[in-house]
Write a protein that binds this DNA or RNA. Sequence first.
DNA 1: CCGTAACATTACTGGGTGGTTATATTATGG
DNA 2: CCATAATATAACCACCCAGTAATGTTACGG
Lengths: 129, 129
Amino acid sequence: MDQRIPCLIGLEHEEADVMMVKAMSPELLTLVAERFKALADPARLRLLNAMRPGEQSVGELVEATELSQANVSKHLAQLHTLGFVKRRKEGLFVYYALADKEIFRLCDVMCGRIEAELKDRERVLRRAV
Amino acid sequence: MDQRIPCLIGLEHEEADVMMVKAMSPELLTLVAERFKALADPARLRLLNAMRPGEQSVGELVEATELSQANVSKHLAQLHTLGFVKRRKEGLFVYYALADKEIFRLCDVMCGRIEAELKDRERVLRRAV
DNA sequence: CCGTAACATTACTGGGTGGTTATATTATGG
DNA sequence: CCATAATATAACCACCCAGTAATGTTACGG
């Protein structure tokens, strides 16, 4: 799990700096994949997004996401199992909140990729005119 | 796509700083989910991991990952479509390389979560003794 | 107690997808 | 040309999983 392998830094072949990087075992990668899978669903991302302003009850999340109650509960259970959200019970209500903000760093990176892609596509379209 | 919503900063209720953050539309979240899905598979993560040292031919990737050739080709096609890898043809061979290193920032965040989780589990175990 | 409200869980089903096997494509050497 | 090597594609199957509908659980109020 903490084995190390060489890794090119500059991506371009000119600057062939090499850094030793943690090699990831297949077992670790399986765990990582499992986490990514939790974020690989629009419904779960909408739930996480709905929690940005702060903790929300299940009912509020149902309303915000326009998903069925059963569906929301199931997705929340998954997110909770993997540690993406924390729960707090208060009477009849259960409040969910983001376990940390790291999640949106991940989303922002993905959004960056998408933006770049859209910009690229736009550039190609302009060239085609 | 560039609408803004309030978002708590400190996660703890004491410091209730609020920042306006980009709200993500369901459409954007669907695109984001699609990207995460590409990373939500052990085989594809192993392929990406195998490209850390630099570009690799399909055959090399088959050997490194111990996946079938057809399987590798299919996964590479997916990763290429979503812009995670770039290809370079040279004679009979096709060389694949990471499109950028951002990908491993993502994986490292996930690894951090897993490490924390393992540490936590360990702590609970110690307490149980 | 009992009814009800909030949430969780179960059983089920349809669509999506990872893997395999077989076949197609492309390029090279003779 | 033809055989072959490297890669891509197609067809197929088994499995997983998101959504739904129904039911279960828990807590509150009267």
